[in-house]
């Protein structure tokens, strides 16, 4: 552990756990509720990113590390993942529209 984290007790972990639990329950309830598909997917994706941020920031202590490490890890993973998906997604949509004889 590095700077800052030594100043916190167990309370921060309990609060992070509660946030994660609340978000998970909200996602499950929303998934079974009658919400329009685009709204549902948007909310689920935002909740997913918030949960990932809470785990990274508080459980993995990225909040207490140097900003350079947090940026390399967070941006590196998310941007690479997003590039990967958005490069192949147009092809996937195109394939689904092709009609085979």
């Amino acid at each position: 552990m590095t700077k800052g984290s030594s100043e916190t007790g167990y309370g921060v972990y309990w609060r992070a756990w509660l946030v994660l639990l609340a978000l998970t329950l909200m996602m499950i309830f929303l998934d079974q509720a009658s919400v329009s598909r685009p709204v549902l997917v948007s909310i689920l994706l935002i909740a997913m990113l918030v949960k990932a941020s809470v785990i990274g920031a508080y459980f993995m202590h990225l909040r207490f590390e140097k900003l350079s490490l947090a940026l390399v890890v967070g941006v590196g993973l998310l941007v690479t993942g997003a590039i990967l998906f958005f490069f192949i997604a147009p092809d996937a949509v195109r394939i689904s529209r092709i009609s085979f004889p």
Binding site: T80, I88, A89, A92
Partner: peptide, 13 residues
């Protein structure tokens, strides 16, 4: 990320 990207491709296609 590669697995989930591939899954997204399969899902969309």
């Amino acid at each position: 990320a590669g697995f989930l990207g591939g899954y997204g491709f399969a899902r969309l296609s």
